[in-house]
């Protein structure tokens, strides 16, 4: 994070420095209002502000209730499911969605026909630009029991008997739908950065390897992969630091009345309880709990990353 240039420390107030000071100050004022003030709002988690009409007043003058809201959440009959879904989905998505674009970029690079390569890349990137409503809606339609194409295909290739069917709307397929959808939507776009890194690899290395008799898998494993390792490390740490920030818009689309036990995550729970049921204090506490878990995961993965690659976020 070095957007700062090291320059002279002495401040000379001229017309120009006043101008840039004002510009930087505008950004700081914005952050104060939209980022720092909400941090004080966390106090609401320890106050009694549920169902209040004026939440601001509840925050300022509400009664302190201690950890009551946290205890209530831990005792919620859904607590175990929600926690398991939030952490499980995130770790699985990290484990599957992080390596997928790297593999995709590696194999895309192996397509020697440039026109084909370009065409595949164009198609792969496209879903990134569709909204979750559109993309999720289409995938749900494809899996529809009566009209969708998933069941006929499964019957066609013999996985299902003629009278059997799978209902992808059921709870046991919720994780599958959420993970597969993010894989299909995100892989192409995320691979762009790795493709760019692969283009920068010295071509002489491949020639030398070919002369030494290395096959294509050997070249991918021993030349391409080590060459893009720095990029991979950076993006791994970035995706770890975004852990638990699972996108509300993504998961909400895949929720239905019967799969909530496997699809409810903290973000959607907070929306339903907080905004729809107006349990402001309670859901602030739930949100705070999520931040704490995310922080613990971040510290843990940073520790692991330092052990394995010698690089950490901090």
């Amino acid at each position: 994070m070095s957007f700062a240039n090291d320059g002279p420390k002495k401040t000379r107030w001229t017309k120009n420095t006043v101008q840039i000071f004002c510009m930087a100050l505008a950004g700081a004022v914005f952050l104060f209002v939209f980022a720092y003030i909400p941090m004080f709002g966390i106090l609401l988690a320890f106050k009694d502000g549920d169902k209040e009409l004026n939440i601001l007043q509840a925050l300022l003058t509400g009664e302190w209730v201690g950890p009551e809201h946290f205890v209530r959440f831990f005792n919620d009959y859904n607590f175990k499911n929600i926690l398991l879904n939030t952490i499980g989905l995130n770790l699985l998505m990290l484990a599957i969605n992080f390596p997928a674009p790297i593999l995709f970029a590696l194999f895309l690079n192996e397509m020697k026909n440039k026109r084909c390569q370009r065409a595949v890349q164009s198609v792969a990137i496209f879903p990134t630009f569709l909204s979750w409503v559109v993309f999720g809606g289409i995938l749900i339609a494809l899996g529809d029991v009566n009209l969708g194409i998933v069941n006929p295909i499964l019957r066609g290739i013999g996985i299902l008997g003629q009278d059997e069917y799978v209902n992808l709307g059921e709870a046991k397929y919720a994780w599958f739908m959420i993970i597969v959808s993010s894989l299909l939507k995100g892989t192409g776009w995320s691979s762009v950065i790795y493709s760019a890194a692969i283009l920068g690899v010295d071509r002489d290395l491949y020639e030398a390897a070919t002369l030494d008799g290395a096959g294509r898998f050997r070249q991918m494993w021993n030349i391409t992969l080590p060459s893009i390792a720095p990029t991979v490390t950076v993006f791994f740490l970035l995706s770890v630091s975004g852990l638990l920030n699972n996108s509300f818009e993504h998961i909400y689309v895949f929720q239905n009345a019967v799969n909530l036990s496997m699809s409810e995550v903290i973000a959607t729970y907070v929306y339903k309880q907080g905004i729809s049921n107006r349990l402001y204090s309670y859901t602030t506490a739930v949100g705070l709990f999520q931040s704490v878990v995310a922080f613990i995961l971040l510290v843990a993965s940073n520790f692991v990353s330092k052990k394995i690659t010698g690089k950490g976020i901090y």
């Binding site: 003030i37 909400p38 973000a267």
Partner: peptide
Amino acid sequence: NLFTLFFGGGTIPFFLL
């Protein structure tokens, strides 16, 4: 600026704001 990249208030405090 950097601090806000790592810490935030969460959904409900932002809604309140």
